[in-house]
Amino acid sequence: MGQILFTLFAFLTVIAAVGVVLNKNAVNAAMCFLLSLVGVAGLFVQLDAYLLAFVLLLVYAGAVVALFLFIIMLLDTQGGSPRRYSPVTIGASVAALALMLTGLGALLTRDRLVAPAIGSADGVGAALKPYAYQLFTTYLLPVQVMGFLLLVAMLGVIVLSRRLTNGEDSQ
């Protein structure tokens, strides 16, 4: 059962991700991105990270994709010139493909990476209490920094989206 679910979610994730890259229409690409995120959330559930799956659906699928769709709706992004790729782009593509194939081959054929045996113990992400305890003791400083980062990002977005009216700003 778990194997079937894993295969299902993995295929959903990869096929939807390919759809993001290949779709001409930006709205369809955003919808494929949403499907891909649902697949990743399913994989998180399989890895016992229930909180993270929930947060991923809430933040990414709920907020980020909605924001993307709003911006696509706001800007008229259709059309554009036909594709012409520079030699640098083609070289980088070939290099990326070669690196990925080498990495996947090394990962799947050699058994360098020995995973520790999983006992019958529950996943660490499953229990919320130790998770929150770690978050607010060991990682208290990063939590504070994240809060400050969100504040800075909010102020930055307000400044960026202000309509520029005075002369020295608008150029």
């Binding site: 990270a49 998770y131 980062l149 990002a153 930055g156």
Partner: peptide
């Protein structure tokens, strides 16, 4: 898992900006 929590936070801020 905790790092992923932070990554999600940073990604949300990054998307907005």
């Amino acid at each position: 898992n905790i790092f992923v929590f932070f990554i999600l936070t940073v990604a949300a801020a990054e998307v907005a900006v």
